[in-house]
Design a protein around this nucleic acid. Structure first.
Lengths: 156, 156
DNA sequence: ATGGGTGCAAAGGTTTTGCACTCCG
DNA sequence: CGGAGTGCAAAACCTTTGCACCCAT
């Protein structure tokens, strides 16, 4: 279950913060650490992060969690995701800009989210950029359907 | 500015409602009519729909709007969209299942959303389905970047 | 030392829900 | 008629904000 993609980590944090004039704080470090250690699944909401902090007897407040997740996304260390479940979710970004894109399959029945890698979209992105005059920085692809488990269960 | 795609309309409403045991009500009809007539841009939020209703001296309550938008999406007459601006938005679905996919370009600066048609993703969808065992019903693609207007403005 | 960062609580915005009443089928 | 649908207001949720205090730089 190891991930061969090169992900951002704590080393990148101090550098990216000072680059932009932000301060390194124990709170920001601790919050990023949760993503790096992936104690739970990735795709964590602010509330998820907050409960892990409370389990660890941390005193970090919920508002700080929101502010840190925002900042870490702005720095490109985290990526903000939206699976339509009513809250923003976050995951570690890949440090290699060439592998910036992985996408999500969302099961409409059990709400499970699985990831897949696919770089077929670079061509599409280029075509869309040319047609529209947009400078495209990022894209997000979600597929909705039924996972194999739920398909079995439904057909039984 | 006419749209050649065949979109769902009021005729489909009664049929789809009774198919599933729901009732046809003046409220549901009136709400769908707003999308069909597209008085404003599509991509309307519940609040957008509600203000149009109030302009029309309608007595429909906001909760009813939320319930109707939910139901119309469930029936496949509307499609729920999420542009990350804090509220769900909706547009009319295409009645032709072969043209189910059009996507959105979102300008990170002025928040403008423009649409584009692209069916390149069918191949990708098939490949992802095969690899994952998912039965894929729908997909959603968003591109984020800067529109040509904002690019000009920024470079000046 | 100084201005950004934090924690708390309160406010904000969107969406959902409880309940009595209405009205479609 | 009976139960789904509605309107209203209150509640639920997620997220943001104001403010006094703290602490990286």
């Amino acid at each position: 279950m190891s991930d061969s993609r090169q992900l951002y980590g704590l080393k990148d944090l101090r550098e990216k913060l000072s680059e932009r004039g932000y301060k390194m704080t124990p709170q920001r470090k601790e919050i990023l650490k949760i993503f790096v250690e992936q104690r739970n699944s990735h795709h964590m909401s602010a509330e998820d992060v907050y409960s892990i902090l409370r389990e660890n007897d941390s005193e970090i407040g919920l508002a700080t969690v929101y502010r840190a997740l925002d900042l870490l996304s702005e720095l490109g260390i985290l990526v903000r995701l939206d699976f339509g479940d009513g809250c923003a979710r976050y995951e570690l970004n890949t440090a290699d800009p060439k592998v910036h894109h992985h996408h999500h399959l969302i099961c409409l029945n059990c709400k499970k989210v699985i990831e897949f890698e696919e770089d077929l979209l670079d061509e599409l992105e280029a075509r869309v950029a040319a047609k529209s005059g947009f400078e495209i920085l990022n894209h997000e692809v979600k597929f909705f359907g039924y996972c194999s488990d739920c398909r079995k269960r439904i057909s039984e």
